[in-house]
Amino acid sequence: MSVILVFLLVVAGFAGWWLSHQRLTAKPWLEQGLAEEFVGLGRSALPTAKIGLGVFLAVVGCLFSLFVSAYFMRMGLSDWRPLPLPRLLWLNTGVLVLSSVALQCAVVAARRGQMDMVRLGLATAGLTALAFLAGQLVAWRQLTEDGYLLASNPANSFFYLITAMHGLHILGGLVGLGRTSAGAWNGARPERLRLSVELCAMYWHFLLFVWLCIFAVLAGWAATFVSICQRLLT
């Protein structure tokens, strides 16, 4: 359970940092009035939707940390046989990076008000994300054809389970991206559009980050890394 505990520690760090700016040691019964001096203690200047997405991403991060925790605990048992990762995953990773880059371009374009570039960025991001999902499915096909079935070994089970979970999250993101694109083509208000594009980008970058982490875990680098750290500590 160490992965999830580390993750929670990071969350707790954020929470602690935020709380430390909220004057939790003040004596509220002594302070009356409108409290102009409390500016900064109200809501954040960030758009509410972004904060909402941030909280949601914390939950998603928690979910994947738990999968990875379970992965490491199950890995320690004797029947674990690691499976060879299909080469294709590298290509998929590249495609997903491309998708994130495209969305980042869309964000920049939206800030500058270049509608064409926004549309281009959104379309590229959507198509590359679809390509990523298709690539993942092909990777699954390859594995099953090579006899690495879901139930034949826990390493396989985890591979399918975690990639599927990640894919589902991408799929959910595509729904959001679709709505944003609809806005981009139907002439939504620019500041609205900018916000949605930014939200999409945030989500995309986060899922890319998650993908890189689980790729490292599934490929076994994470385990190697952890054991090196342990050796350094002892």
């Binding site: 909220q22 909402g52 939950v59």
Partner: peptide, 24 residues
Amino acid sequence: FTMGGLNYVVTVLQGRTRGMTLMR
């Protein structure tokens, strides 16, 4: 629940009216 929970948390973070600091 996650859908509802997001609301409860973000409303406390962002929905507070003027003067409603955390310690109030």
